[in-house]
Design a protein around this nucleic acid. Structure first.
Lengths: 365, 365
DNA sequence: GTGCTTCAGTAACGCGCGTCAGTAACGCGA
DNA sequence: TCGCGTTACTGACGCGCGTTACTGAAGCAC
């Protein structure tokens, strides 16, 4: 016969005290006086029985689930291609664990369901929502009902605290670096369609850096990527066919890998013929050919910060409306000075080739 | 004044029935008779009040949390470098959602904590445990206490149902493919230290394929990788310095990227000088240079299968002790026939170069 | 009318805990 | 002795739901 799991009543009986006392002892309540002797008796009884409080009963009595939710609002493909998601999740869970919280994940592509019930059914105490684009209405409604919500990412004109990477500053740094190397015609491949805030912000950083250097924005130098390497290949291919430039800011490492392939397919060499700077610093970027100069985003810290902000909100503490995490330029081998080849080749005297793909050249594979 | 969230009692009052009736109606119980008229009254009242059952109360009353846990038992670095984890998690959440379940993630590196309390405190109804190596004791104990557990991965001699990719068969396919291309001296870089079952299995598949072709196993052709690209670079570098071979099976795409870099650093070209086959088919593999021929692992399906198996166990249905998911060889551009160069170069007459790295060559970056 | 069955709905209990109000015992000063 | 505060503990209620056993009423054959 399987023994029933022990309840606090069993512990009370075993220790010869009341259930109330058990609760006081095990919750370490400072405001009630318990003699050291009974405290010990209770602790030992609990130990002996292998007592573990029933989570649901506790939640019901205290009105707290000690759980936060992570809602992923991207498409399935986008999630699968997200190289930094695991790190972000780790940051979130670790922030949660420090506060005694657990994390519930809900991968809910747009239009595939509703996460409001997570909150309204009190399954979680709060929500980190990542990558929303169209459910502003739901968000605002939940926020107004008083539920703690933190946005991971950005969404203009929303009265919800958000935590994000400083995409604009990172992009500015990347492009400023290329400008510093002497480049003037710098192309930009976005990391996603511009409806995504991060894509728009990175493009804005690109424009700002050009502007600061007194260079006019040229629309023909911009092409949209879309999460995956294939889009980067296509975008770079289109740019090479359309116009000429000596450097490119590709706003995502994953997209950049595709772009590197397109340059190669066109017979060009990076950085000799074209300098490239990426964004994200995925773990493979250092092993691209050439190793990718890129902007590091602190993925773990991002999850951490989102978690901390949410927990603060749950605790009723004030939370800044917007937290931006800094990025960092990582110089590796994919960008070189104008008029100089990449150092890895050693033949500095050869001028940069003017890359151009004829209409008959091989397209994307 | 903030309105209190509605309870089933409120719905009952609003509909003019008892709470019991509300419960019967909203849970759509077939075994009790409710007139269509009152059914409608209750549903409408619930709708009007925006009623949402309190999850904890429900869990307490029914003894079911409708939640499963995913325990990640790898190191933090390993999780961060895992390119297929998001897909697996998606598969798991989607299997869960179909059954009305949610997923709780617990990233618990070895020796950093205890996941038994998740079960013992009834926070979850069951657990998918991924990548354990040393907590067999805990697992067996929980299993014996009757908790539903499914292993994602493999662990010998454990009486816990497991779901895994058929690593051995996949490796066999990869190596058989290289053999079919005429290669005889085939190196192997493992995807992890051999203490990891998946690494041992993939190496075993490599040996089996060689054996089937009547080729003796040569220990000097094997080098251990370790999750990241850097280890692949180092391993390939060591192999090139130590011996010669015309092909390599690198048991992870991430590790393979580093290996490709090492070949390049040694002045070799893939597949002209060396054929390479990877494992995993991460989303970037098709954009490596050259595009990586590899073994596709069904990451999403893996999560799906683990989830389904766990839910079956929770429902008390029998579950096979071991579920192995098939893999698939994806031929791309990183392997070529012996005596022929890769077709992309077009100069078939050049014999394969014998690659060898002098002791003065550049090492890992 | 009687006995039986089916239909429609309800009262009351229990899930396991947190917590408030209350109490008994025990000093301790005047 | 009384009054009062302190210490150490307990009884009982409530959290919001699911569910079992029960009650009336209606229908129906005899």
């Amino acid at each position: 016969m399987a023994r029933r799991r022990p309840t606090s009543a069993d512990v009370a009986r075993e220790a010869g005290v009341s259930r109330t006392t058990v609760s006081f002892v095990l919750n370490e309540r400072e405001d009630v006086a318990i003699s050291e002797a009974t405290r010990r008796r209770v602790v030992e009884a609990a130990e002996r029985l292998g007592y573990q409080p029933h989570a649901a009963a506790r939640q019901l009595a205290r009105g707290l689930t000690l759980t936060i939710g992570l809602v992923l609002r991207q498409s399935a493909e986008q999630i699968a291609a997200d190289a930094v998601l695991p790190a972000t999740v780790q940051g979130l869970t670790s922030a949660a664990r420090r506060a005694g919280y657990q994390v519930m994940v809900e991968a809910l592509p747009p239009d595939s369901g509703d996460y409001a019930q997570l909150l309204r059914s009190r399954r979680v105490d709060g929500l980190v929502v990542s990558g929303p684009r169209q459910d502003e209405a739901d968000l605002v409604a939940l926020q107004r009902e008083g539920f703690p919500i933190v946005l991971q990412g950005s969404l203009a004109g929303l009265d919800v605290p958000s935590v994000d990477v400083d995409n604009r500053a990172g992009a500015r740094d990347a492009v400023a670096y290329l400008l510093g190397l002497g480049h003037r015609r710098i192309a930009c491949v976005t990391n996603a369609p511009l409806a995504y805030t991060s894509a728009a912000e990175r493009l804005a950083g690109y424009r700002e850096a050009l502007e600061a250097a007194g260079i006019d924005f040229d629309e023909s130098l911009v092409e949209a990527g879309s999460f995956d390497a294939g889009s980067g290949h296509a975008a770079m291919d289109a740019l090479l066919r359309r116009t000429s430039f000596s450097a490119a800011f590709v706003a995502s490492d994953v997209v950049a890998l595709g772009a590197l392939g397109a340059v190669r397919a066109a017979g060009g060499r990076v950085p000799r013929d074209l300098s490239v700077v990426g964004f994200d610093d995925i773990s493979l970027a250092a092993y691209f050919d050439p190793p990718l100069t890129t902007i590091r985003v602190p993925a773990y810290d991002l999850g951490e910060a989102a978690g901390s902000a949410l927990l603060a909100r749950i605790a009723g503490e004030p939370v800044p409306a917007r937290t931006l995490l800094g990025t960092e330029l990582l110089v590796r081998g994919s960008a070189a000075s104008v008029g100089r080849t990449g150092s890895r080749n050693g033949n500095d005297s050869v001028p940069p080739t003017r890359l151009h793909v004829g209409s008959g050249a091989a397209g994307a594979s």
